[in-house]
Design a protein around this nucleic acid. Structure first.
Length: 485
RNA sequence: GCCGCCGUAGCUCAGCUGGUAGAGCAGCGGGCUUUUAACCCGAAGCGCGCAGGUUCGAGUCCUGCCGGCGGCACCA
């Protein structure tokens, strides 16, 4: 990682020493009064070619390019908001300062006082009247024109990606916008943001394997949460009525273009609402996000989105009727008889087979957002029984671009039914299902206290950002994705 | 875990059917007062991911390993 030829590093260190010898602090403490480059540009749009102004600004950023002229040079300075050209003239700065300025390296952090003018080709430029090194850079930056292309380096050393590639900066600014818009949507609709434990004595709320850790003082195993679901519903039991939490969940599973072991999820719970209300909220929230980030991608995110029953979607894509084959034996026979579906049947139980059909034949076909609704009860230990469909629960998942990005249901609030569901999970766990839910008596007791009818939603932020930014890999939208050592 | 593709200078990339490694940018020295991937001159910089093997000779062919990407599996 730090195997650069020593002469490249030595040259920068030599300049560092030279600065110190000249009495210049290469790492000053502050630089007050900086204006964003974009703000300077916005204030002077439409200058005529060669037009001078008497407007002065102080800007700061990283030195990105230099076109030297001996007694005059042009430099490019980049900050978070944009890039601006600087003009350095020997007769303005004096020879000594000019020499110091030209002795800087690409990548150095630089503060500049300058006067706005337009170059003779019309480019907005700051004529440098004074400058200060704000931090010496001791390593060479990525290529000034090609940026940093190598995917591995971009992800392992995101700071280089961010400094070299404007698109990377924009993407993570967009990500921030997605999150603040979601918060804004929920805040403005009466939801209270809460924080529940990340370290949990018992994990739950999703079908997944957890990470484990150890608390020394308590001398006990703890789990990193796989979902916020159960604690949030306890908040609803307590009367907070509309709550949400936005943060990291952790699932001990493989990496893929759609999975990172730690990922960001927002879950919200709304008392006196059901999954139909939740669908409307998801549509509204996504539409709000799309508007805020100026979405111009390939999908039509405009509400309302189609609602398709899971069984119907599977029937449409495979010709297999899961409702007519409600047990493992007949479903296996139907799959094997089908010429449109081919699955590893093996020892998979009925719900698992349904899930397989969904993820293999339905999910990849979906482009524009769709709600797949009404799931088999076996796949959904926390969802409430469907009010009219036997064996189903009131649950939906939202899909877009070939992947799921939200999961929601009318929450099961009958404690006795919940207890039976947990017992079933325990049976599955004992049968070897490593993702089965552990029994959570504390949660059941909370339900016994009485939880109002409630709709709950979990929405994957990373995947939503992927959709908004048109990225096909989650690693592109996570600053520091998990990678091998 | 399995399959395929990839790994050459700090960065971006060439390198044919095996003949002993190059360019641009960056860096170094010099020139240049309106450049825009500035330009011009000069001198440098590569154990070709790692380890073996085949061969007179390997960046190039073979095997294993490491890392990345994509897919499958696992998994929401």
């Amino acid at each position: 990682m730090s195997e650069e030829p020593s002469d490249l590093l030595a040259a920068r260190r030599a300049k560092l020493e030279r600065m110190r010898e000249q009495g210049v602090d290469p790492f000053p403490h502050d630089y007050p009064g900086v204006t964003a480059i974009a703000e300077v540009a916005a204030a002077h749009a439409g200058l005529a070619d060669g037009e001078e102004t008497d407007a002065s600004y102080r800007v700061a950023g990283r030195l990105a390019a230099r076109r030297g002229q001996g007694k005059m040079a042009f430099l490019d300075l980049v900050d978070r908001s944009g890039r601006i050209q600087l003009q350095a003239k020997s007769d303005v700065l004096g020879e000594e300062a000019m020499e110091r300025l030209l002795d800087l390296d690409l990548g150095d952090l630089l503060g500049v006082d300058g006067t706005v003018f337009a170059s003779r080709t019309g480019e907005l430029t700051l004529r440098v009247t004074d400058f200060a090194v704000l931090a010496k850079s001791l390593r060479p930056p990525p290529d000034k024109h090609h940026g940093l292309q190598d995917v591995e380096t971009r992800q392992r050393r995101r700071e280089l990606d961010l400094m070299a590639n404007e698109e990377a900066r924009e993407l993570f600014m967009t990500r921030a916008k997605v999150i603040s818009t979601l918060r804004g949507y929920l805040d403005s609709h009466g939801f209270v943001e809460v924080e529940t434990p990340v370290l949990q004595p018992l994990y739950g709320g999703a079908l997944a394997r957890p990470f484990t850790t150890h608390h020394n003082a308590l001398d006990r195993e703890l789990y990193l949460r796989i979902a916020t679901e159960l604690y949030l519903k306890r908040c609803v039991v307590g009367g907070l009525e509309r709550v949400y939490e936005l943060g990291k969940d952790f699932r001990n599973e493989g990496l893929s273009t759609k999975h990172n072991p730690e990922f960001t999820m927002v879950e919200w719970y709304e008392a006196y609402a059901d999954y139909s209300d939740a669908m409307a909220r998801v549509e509204q929230a996504v539409a709000a996000v799309a508007g805020a980030v100026g979405y111009e991608g390939e999908y039509d995110l405009t509400p309302p989105w189609p609602r398709i029953a899971l069984a119907q979607a599977v029937l449409d894509e495979t010709g297999i009727d899961i409702r007519a084959n409600p047990d493992r034996e007949s479903l296996v026979a139907a799959i094997e008889a089908s010429d449109r579906a081919e699955l590893e049947v093996e020892d998979h139980a009925w719900p698992k087979l349904v899930d397989d059909l969904l993820s293999k034949y339905v999910e990849p076909k979906i482009t524009n957002p769709v709600f797949i609704i009404d799931y088999p009860v076996e796949l959904s230990p926390f969802a409430k029984r469907h009010r009219s469909e036997e064996g189903l629960v009131e649950r939906f998942e939202a899909f877009c671009g070939g992947m799921e990005f939200a999961n929601a249901f009318s929450e099961l609030n009958d404690p006795d039914e919940q207890r039976r569901r947990f017992e079933e999970q325990v049976r599955l766990g004992e049968a070897g299902d490593e993702e089965a839910q552990p029994y959570d008596e504390g949660y059941v007791e909370a339900l016994e206290q009485g939880m109002p009818p409630t709709a709950g939603v979990g929405l994957g932020i990373d995947r939503l950002v992927m959709i908004m930014c048109g990225k096909s890999s989650i690693r592109e939208v996570v600053l520091f994705p998990a990678m091998r050592d």
